[in-house]
């Protein structure tokens, strides 16, 4: 069974968001990594890039397929997880520890559209 972490927000496209002082830390859920299988490459934006809620900001590649990443909130990228460049498998090992990007949130009201852990858990059940 896929793990769902309490205290995070989730998108329908399986990204998770942890909000820390106006910064959204964004990754993909355990469910998403399990569906993908062995992740071999993470296509990430660059610092200072703008991302828009619901729009593609990068992609995960497994051996077999590529899967787009969608921004759960709008804002400016302030940090990307460089460790994933050499070790994309960190996402398979612990999807909630292996964050992908951090975004300075431009519109906090967008967070209201995301699911809490309970709602996300029932959506993937």
């Amino acid at each position: 069974m896929s793990k769902v972490l309490e205290g995070l927000l989730y998108s329908e496209s399986h990204e998770w968001v942890k909000v820390e002082d106006g910064i959204a830390v964004i990754g993909v859920s355990d469910f998403a990594q399990a569906e993908m299988g062995d992740i071999t490459y993470v296509d990430m934006p660059e610092v200072d890039d703008e991302v828009n809620a619901g729009e593609e900001f990068g992609a995960l590649e497994s051996v077999k397929a590529s899967s787009d990443l969608y921004a759960p909130v709008s804002g400016t990228v302030v940090e990307v997880n460089g460790a994933l460049e050499d070790e994309p498998e960190l996402i398979n090992q612990d999807a909630f520890a292996a964050w992908i990007i951090k975004v300075k949130i431009s519109d906090p009201s967008e967070l209201d559209k995301l699911m809490d852990a309970a709602a996300y858990e029932s959506s993937i059940a």
């Binding site: 071999t40 490459y41 296509d43 590649e61 397929a65 590529s66 460049e85």
Partner: peptide, 11 residues
């Protein structure tokens, strides 16, 4: 055959 100089995957 094409080899690309990056880890990104041509599909």
């Amino acid at each position: 055959g094409i080899e690309i100089q990056d880890k990104a995957i041509p599909r």
